[in-house]
Design a protein around this nucleic acid. Structure first.
Length: 331
DNA sequence: CGCGTTTGACCGGCGC
DNA sequence: GCGCCGGTCAAACGCG
């Protein structure tokens, strides 16, 4: 665990090296480079992103409590498992909107100014994403995989049907290690040079049979110490590695995607939230999926919460610097 | 030998 | 229509 902090998103302006990213990311860095971050457990979720590249909807959320609670989980999945959904009416909704109209949240990355760090989660969802989510849930996954497999041999099957994109979840971490250990086994299937970035982007796929979860890993061109990991899809199996006897993942809803299927926030709201961070005390993110129900609730500081425990034990300080816990940097 | 990585080619979407 | 670009495939290769 390392120091972390939310980086206030700068005003929406232009694109950046990560503008190729389907969604937005908030900065996450760890203040203590050594030892290198080599586990997702060391990362701090930070924000939620949404949408695919087209209907890219995204939004930042205050994840202070996520960070805090997450600190007690053996893994991100544990964390989700330990944080059942609470309430659903207050949840903010990310509404898909053209990525071009969105502020380039990647700008956030352009401000690695804060020495302290944080990890950030981004997730994406849109209609297609939701559809994809439904597909997974209904077992159409194999079909899609098959489609992928034969994509090269057979020509386009459904030309007019856009390829559906799984909901995505992105982390940003400050790490010397590109490929973070998140408890699952990944097989690298591709690597591409990233435009405007000296660092390549690596593509990984979950090696478990039938599991179509993918993830991309790349470094920020602005700050080579920042690693952006984007998860796509849902695991349909428990984590093969279950540190500290973690519960593993339920088969019907285990991926990040599930968590993001309902992250829909109107662009305007997103813009607001993008600058709210810790100043926005209540943002619950929920999902319609009951088995996998991460709820990011930040409306209050519970003295008996794991977050408080962390705080009391001085752990929180490592996660969220005092400056970030106080006043959000607006604009 | 099995598994993972590397890498060039290919495909499809999208903007101009 | 063309070119760019992100994403994927799959053969070759490396490693334990």
């Amino acid at each position: 665990m390392a120091n972390s902090s939310f980086i206030t998103p700068p005003p929406a302006t232009t694109t950046s090296d990560i503008d190729q990213m389907p969604s937005a990311y908030a900065l996450s860095t760890t203040a203590t480079p050594p030892p290198p971050l080599n586990s997702i457990f060391d990362m701090m979720p930070c924000d939620i992103i949404g949408g695919d590249q087209k209907a890219g909807s995204l939004g930042f959320i205050d994840l202070l409590d996520i960070n805090q609670d997450f600190g007690t989980a053996a893994s991100l999945f544990d964390w989700f498992a330990q944080n059942p959904i609470v309430g659903s009416q207050q949840q903010q909704t990310f509404v898909p909107s053209p990525a071009s109209t969105l502020p380039e949240t990647s700008e956030v990355l352009n401000n690695p100014a804060t020495p302290n760090s944080s990890a950030s989660i981004s997730s994406s969802s849109n209609e297609a994403g939701n559809d994809a989510f439904q597909q997974v849930k209904t077992g159409d996954q194999e079909e899609e995989q098959d489609h992928d497999k034969t994509k090269k041999q057979l020509k386009p099957k459904k030309k007019n049907q856009k390829r559906q994109r799984e909901p995505r979840f992105a982390f940003m971490t400050k790490s010397e290690v590109d490929h973070l250990d998140d408890g699952f086994r990944w097989r690298k299937y591709g690597q591409k040079a990233v435009k405007n970035s000296p660092y390549p982007r690596s593509y990984y796929r979950c090696t478990s049979a039938g599991c179509g979860v993918k993830k991309r890993v790349e470094r920020s061109s602005d700050d080579s110490s920042i690693v952006v990991t984007t998860y796509e899809g849902q695991h349909i199996h428990p984590s093969p590695i279950t540190p500290r006897g973690s519960i593993g993942i339920l088969t019907d809803s285990t991926g990040f995607g599930a968590a993001t299927s309902s992250f829909v926030i109107p662009e305007t709201q997103y813009q607001q939230h993008a600058y709210m961070y810790s100043s926005s005390p209540s943002l619950n993110i929920t999902t319609s999926n009951t088995s996998f129900s991460p709820t990011f609730s930040f409306h209050q500081r519970r003295s008996d919460s794991p977050a408080s425990l962390l705080r009391d034990h001085g752990l929180l300080q490592d996660i969220v610097p005092s400056q970030m816990r106080k006043e959000p940097k607006e604009e």
